[in-house]
Write a protein that binds this DNA or RNA. Structure first.
Length: 775
DNA sequence: TTGTTACTATTTTTT
DNA sequence: ATAGTAACAA
């Protein structure tokens, strides 16, 4: 490992291919984009020939290096935009990179057709050669719902008990195999018995056959079939070897085996492959990422140069020191020493609290304090290990009226109503899409249930035709009872009509028509649940978004690959997210709650993957701490509700692994029950005595906060909200209102900008007026 | 076929 | 606690 380091340093003196570049070129003034880089970054950008691994620690300018490198390749004329393959994991990263390359080159990147996610690029390559892997170029890409439905069918067809052999389990097994590049015919003996008493391979193969029947692929196939394509057709691979002069990979520590193999095949062409990553930030092992890929880079790509970026531009000395000390407890790492030219800054604070409610309250107060001192909420984040931890914070922030945003929650295209709507549109466009057809067959309810579906499936299977086709012929026979028969006939007629309208009207109008006439919109309008309103909004949003595309087909292709929608970034809000979602982001102040054994490190990670699991959890902690520019505040609760029951918790071992010189142990003022909950003690650990903080008022407030059913005026700071509530409408007692989180309710009491509302579902809650709307 | 009740499995999450 | 699912009754 030390050798790598030496290697990197010496390489700086003589870039390997310098002599290939004409002297006139070398003597030119450095282009402006190189000036902004430090020597290591510049080396990473300019070392263009042969394999390069850039080990980029947290906050060392990884994205900058990657984008500048692309810009450099283009600006020096080494390759045309279409000759550079750049892969990322997320659409967000791809978008960002595209934009930043564009900024540096002044638009040359416009046509970088091969900058995208592994899956998008895989799909693109596969479409050009579909026949070579038993597909038609128009193949559809299944989402997880479709995949699960299909696997369920396969399990049923095999005559297995779904309860004993749950489809989800097989789905994740198949996923795992595909991640490791294992196709159905190559399933190792030991994996055979991982499902259904040795029938694993048989089921995997049956599933693959069904995919081919449907002319469909799942996400794993986008890579696995790509591998097969390259292996079975060397001439195709050779074509891409000639095509791609430079390969770049972002977040290399997150690659799985299939991606690695895919990449290695492509890199066999001219070996100009540059991978950027940080072994210390590998946190996706549970979904197939192999840290080994990055650890083994030099073996896999002979002659590789390793360049370390160790100068951190983000965090203070104490934060880096604490994070480095923690991660040093991991065994399998390449090793980096991050340093900063910043000052030491504040030490990390660690504090124990009584329970999750107190944790949320103290952090809430701390945030208000920061806000009073002029900190933007946008610069503050709370990073949790598991999403259930978010609830306490959301509840607290809603009562405080503290604006927050949840990052990475349920994504737009994952929502039920969006998937349903898309299923309708997909079937309109492509009647042969059986899985989507099944999805909407009885949504809304039209009396076409399990029994009808069974008849349809049987018929379709016998004739070897899609369900919609089978349905049509079934209408001619007497196999179905009159009622379902009529319903089915109506549905088919509707689809025919919509299909006919495809050419007649803009696709957004058609979408509205389909959703209206199918009764889908009506279904949600009649739904009384608090989310129904939001769902209808989402449907409107979907149609608005469709307007950005030229055609329905174009829109649907986008949706199948790009599962995320742009996050709204308006307003000054605290960010709330999981540690996983936080990778790549940074904030001035980061709160890290829930550092307790069992939660963080998570018990499941320990049980499932032992030491490797623990090390991944530790990397997660490292990622969390290094998100902070100035302040990291760790808390742990002594008591936490797990699955409804209270459990005593002990502080995470990670707390004790933090080097003491970088950490300040904040006293736990309320932890042992001396101070009443609700007292003004912040996470800095200093009791903030204020004029309104007499013991009596504390008790009063504790009563109000603790016992839910609060009455009387609120004593929590109302003044913070002045700016947000300026334009809030005024309400009357007894008025019906709608609240994003709690649904519909009736106003029971008004205190300035705070309302007490009896919610239909959620009961009596105290909310801020700006958070509700008239109904 | 639909609505009700009982039961179970609850980290992280992209494509 | 809770949500999502499966068996069961109407």
């Amino acid at each position: 490992m030390a050798r790598n380091h030496a290697n990197a340093v010496s390489a700086e003196a003589a870039p390997r291919a310098a002599n290939k570049v004409p002297l006139s070129q070398r003597a030119r003034a450095r282009p402006p984009y190189l000036h902004a880089l430090n020597p290591e970054q510049r080396e990473a950008v300019e070392t263009l020939d042969g394999p390069v691994l850039v080990l980029a620690g947290a906050g060392t300018g990884k994205t900058r290096v990657l984008t500048t490198r692309i810009a450099h390749i283009l600006a020096t004329g080494r390759a045309q935009p279409y000759e550079v393959l750049a892969v990322t994991f997320t659409n967000k990263a791809a978008r960002e990179m595209k934009q930043r390359v564009g900024e540096i080159t002044g638009g040359i990147a416009e046509g970088m057709p091969w900058l995208g996610t592994f899956h998008a690029i895989g799909a693109r390559i596969l479409r050009s050669h579909a026949e070579l892997v038993d597909l038609q170029p128009s193949f559809t890409i299944l989402d997880t719902d479709d995949q699960l439905r299909l696997i369920k069918q396969v399990i049923q067809a095999a005559g297995l008990d779904e309860k004993r052999w749950p489809p989800r389990v097989l789905a994740s097994l198949i996923d795992g195999w595909k991640n490791r590049g294992i196709s159905a015919d190559k399933l190792p003996e030991e994996d055979q018995y991982s499902f259904a008493d040795g029938r694993a391979g048989e089921l995997y193969a049956a599933y693959q056959q069904r995919l081919i029947d449907l002319n469909a692929v799942d996400f794993g196939d986008l890579l696995l079939q790509g591998l097969r394509l390259f292996r079975e057709n060397p001439e195709v691979l050779a074509r891409y070897h000639r095509k791609f002069k430079y390969l770049l990979v972002d977040e290399y520590q997150d690659t799985n085996v299939a991606q690695y193999l895919w990449l290695r095949l492509l890199a066999q062409g001219n070996h100009n492959v540059c991978c950027v990553g940080d072994d210390d930030q590998s946190i996706y092992g549970w979904r197939g990422a192999e840290v080994d890929n990055i650890l083994r880079f030099e073996n896999d790509f002979p002659g590789a140069q390793v360049i370390r970026l160790e100068r951190n531009y983000r965090s203070t000395g104490h934060i880096l020191g604490a994070a480095s000390g923690l991660i040093a407890h991991n065994q399998g790492r390449l090793g980096k020493t991050l340093h900063t030219q910043d000052g030491d800054g504040e030490q990390l604070s660690v504090m124990g609290v009584w329970d999750d409610e107190e944790e949320a309250r103290l952090i809430g107060e701390d945030i208000e304090q920061l806000q009073r001192n002029g900190h933007a909420l946008n610069d503050i984040a709370i990073l949790v290990r598991a999403s259930f931890q978010m609830r306490a914070f959301e509840d607290r922030f809603v009562t405080l009226g503290l604006p927050y945003r949840v990052i990475g929650g349920p994504r737009f295209y994952e929502r039920q109503e969006i998937k349903d709507a898309i299923a309708y549109l997909e079937v309109t466009l492509n009647p042969a899409n059986d899985l989507k057809f099944e999805r909407i067959l009885n949504t809304p309810k039209r009396g076409l249930g399990e029994a009808t579906l069974k008849v349809l499936r049987g018929h379709a299977r016998r004739e070897g035709v899609p369900l919609a086709r089978a349905a049509r012929t079934l209408l001619e026979t007497a196999e179905l009872k009159p009622k379902p028969r009529k319903a089915l006939a109506d549905l088919l007629a509707q689809f025919d009509r919509w299909r006919g309208a495809l050419e007649q009207m803009p696709h957004t109008e058609l979408a509205e028509l389909v959703l209206d006439e199918s009764g889908y919109t009506a279904m949600w309008q009649q739904d009384k649940s608090p989310q129904a309103q939001t769902r209808l909004e989402n449907l409107k949003e979907l149609i608005r978004f469709m307007g950005d595309f030229d055609s329905l087909a174009g829109f649907l292709e986008h949706v199948s690959l790009v599962m995320d929608a742009e996050q709204d970034s308006d307003g000054d809000r605290v960010s709330l997210m999981t540690l996983h979602a936080a990778k790549g982001l940074e904030f001035d102040t980061v709160f890290l709650p829930g550092w307790e054994e069992g939660l963080f490190p998570h018990q499941r990670a320990l049980d499932d993957s032992g030491l490797a699991g623990l090390e991944e959890e530790r990397r997660l902690a490292y990622v969390g701490i290094t998100r902070a520019r100035k302040r990291s505040k760790i808390t742990f609760a002594q008591n936490r509700r797990v699955r409804g029951l209270w459990q005593a918790a002990i502080p995470s071992r990670f707390v004790d692994e933090l080097p003491e010189e970088h950490v300040e142990a904040a006293p736990a003022p309320t932890a042992y029950g001396f101070a009443a909950p609700g007292s003004d003690v912040n996470v800095f650990g200093m009791a903030q005595a204020s004029e309104r903080d007499t013991p009596g008022r504390r008790r009063a407030r504790a009563y109000q906060n603790g016992n839910g059913g609060s009455r009387g005026p609120v004593t929590i700071d109302g003044k913070l909200l002045a700016s947000e509530t300026a334009d809030a409408p005024s309400f009357d007692l007894g008025e019906r209102i709608f609240h994003q989180k709690f649904g519909y309710g009736e106003i029971a009491q008004i205190d300035g900008n705070k309302l007490t509302v009896d919610f239909d579902k959620a009961g009596r809650k105290r909310v801020v007026a700006s958070f509700v709307e008239r109904h």
